[in-house]
Design a protein around this nucleic acid. Structure first.
Lengths: 343, 343
DNA sequence: TAGGGCATCCAAAGCGCTTTGGCTATGATT
DNA sequence: AATCATAGCCAAAGCGCTTTGGATGCCCTA
């Protein structure tokens, strides 16, 4: 069923039917009701493509998910983020178009989305430091919003980020308050902006307590279980091992836990762990008392809000780009406790 | 830059330029070369919308991800599956459109995709038993392919599935061979077809060894870490506790491991664990020797292949729907060993 | 020399929608 | 009674592409 058929069916012109359906005023209430009823009865929906062609809008948002060619790793937070963003799009009649793409093809993808007029805007995932995508998108004039920030990109752009720095600063301070002095950081890849900021927060806290930054206590890598395990195991075997560990993701924290327990040590007594928790639906951090003490911030909520920001930009171009900085909650769970006494 | 401008620029008609770009024969080699060069120089790409309108194809595939409203859980395998499918689409000039949708809205979504002519076909994720989506899609005449199968749906349809039944049958048998008799199953939600089949495989093996199916040894729920932990903890506390556990996902296996170690037991000695491993990029099962003995099958590869099946259907409608049954590998890792001797 | 066959190219219609620029009554205004 | 808004509707153009159904030369054959 298309507009033409529907309007013939009603004995009206396409113009009138279109206007009735899109809420224009120059249609009588009676006619509008009749049209709406018929549309429902015939399950009529305007073709997105035709509508897009006629209006010049794509009614779609692109999500370009970077995948480093080497590791072929898809960020696990992505599912939940997308779920949040999708909610917002659905409410506003937008579609979500996904491209998963190797780093070196990204430029081509963005240019393609632009020149094919496939989307009205894009969400930038996983920003790195000095991320080249941001100037590229600005040059292309394709509206965008960034999940995270890109240190080094000067011109203003729209973003939503967790305050990673303050979250990790607070978490580290919390460990100091419990008497820990040897605190390790198992971080994500530090080309990623969020990892960079977390490290900065961690170092801030160390400096505030006059503790030297010790490279032996810092690891950086892709946040897998195995990475958390190996890093922890290695550090625990060294002399002057850490009594507390900051992990950048729940998944690597699970690995850290495995290494700790494998050494016959007890979490929360011999070794404390704090992790960042993105509140992923399939990786919930415990029941009444969370398993891990964690800095928590829902990535799904982030998706919802960032989608709103982008739709705003598209609806009112030319405004100052909006930015949201979410504060993570520090949730005390069972994985932290006072530093063990020196024997 | 659009076709009109490009063709004016070249002093050719739109027809000729279009034909040159789309590989039609009635264009001289010289002209074609000239056109292609200009298209590259101006970074011209035909508008997907206009092309879609003109050809009647959407050049897009829909992925409708169900999300049970209650649990709001996004299946974690979804990211890797999508990455695989996306590769295939990119190679064939298709876009991927994503809708994440609560169970009760699914019907509306499919009808919408159809009547808005937004996609040429859809991938059905997470089929349940007697899944109503399959007859619905058949009725709508929207091409589709299913990731998994739906027991109870009689009319033929295209699908790709892991042989869950034989995988779990073999895994269970493997445990019997090691001397285990009390084998527990920590399964996914058994409305899900895959979970149903895994259970059937497990029960097959029990029967083949004349061991009664014991409901006390079977759990079914959403495959989170916490679910794996709680199920294992509870079962280990009972008299006549299991000496081996079959887990339906690596994530719940991690929870099972936690429970086992919390009891002061050793994995692979006191309690053996076998899990299904979807080979997710961020959850790799160990290094040289896998941590967990596992039935393994790459969900990313599944995405690649299923996308192909669907594109085939779209290109050649009316053929017999293709189906692929992948066999999982049984990879021996460090989490299994002979059953402990009775004291 | 006329006709046929090819190789190249083009004008225009059409895909399904929105939107511009009318047109026609009807009732209010002077 | 003549004029004028206004409400309510419509025809047709246009969005950027593909595709149908010719045109136009040019070379070859008879």
């Amino acid at each position: 069923m298309n507009l033409k058929e529907l309007s013939q069916n009603l004995g009206l012109s396409q113009t009138t039917v279109s206007r009735a359906l899109n809420g224009y005023p120059e249609v009588s209430a009676a006619t509008r009701a009749r049209v709406e009823e018929a549309a429902k009865a015939f399950n009529y929906r305007p073709s997105t493509r035709a509508k897009g062609l006629a209006t010049g809008k794509a009614l779609a948002i692109g999500h370009v998910i970077p995948m480093s060619t080497k590791h072929e790793m898809v960020n696990p937070i992505f599912g939940d983020f997308i779920a949040g963003a999708g909610e917002t799009y659905a409410r506003h009649g937008y579609e979500m178009i996904l491209s998963i793409v190797a780093d070196e093809d990204e430029h081509q993808i963005y240019r393609g989305l632009k020149s094919r007029r496939a989307v009205d805007g894009v969400i930038v995932h996983g920003p790195r430091m000095n991320d080249p995508r941001i100037p590229l998108l600005q040059e292309l004039g394709l509206p965008f919003a960034v999940h995270g920030r890109a240190t080094g990109c000067e011109t203003p752009y729209a973003w939503l980020d967790v305050n990673n720095r303050s979250a990790f600063e607070r978490a580290t301070r919390f460990l100091f308050d419990l008497g820990h002095r040897r605190i390790a950081l198992i971080n994500g890849l530090e080309v990623m902006d969020f990892a960079h900021r977390r490290r900065a927060g961690y170092e801030d806290a160390l400096r505030a307590h006059n503790v030297a930054v010790d490279p032996a206590l810092m690891r950086s890598g892709e946040m897998t279980e195995v990475f958390g395990y190996q890093s922890t195991r290695d550090m625990l075997q060294e002399t002057n091992a850490p009594t507390a560990i900051l992990a950048s993701s729940l998944i690597s924290a699970l690995g850290a836990r495995r290494a700790v327990e494998e050494q016959g040590l007890t979490i929360g007594r011999d070794v404390s762990i704090i992790t960042h928790d993105d509140a992923l639906s399939y990786l919930q951090n415990g029941g009444d008392v969370p398993i891990f003490t964690a800095t928590r911030s829902s990535v799904r909520e982030a998706g919802r809000q960032l989608a709103h920001i982008l739709l705003d930009i598209i609806a009112n171009p030319g405004g100052t780009p909006k930015a949201i900085l979410l504060e993570a909650e520090l949730m005390v769970g069972g994985s932290t406790g006072p530093a063990p006494r020196k024997d």
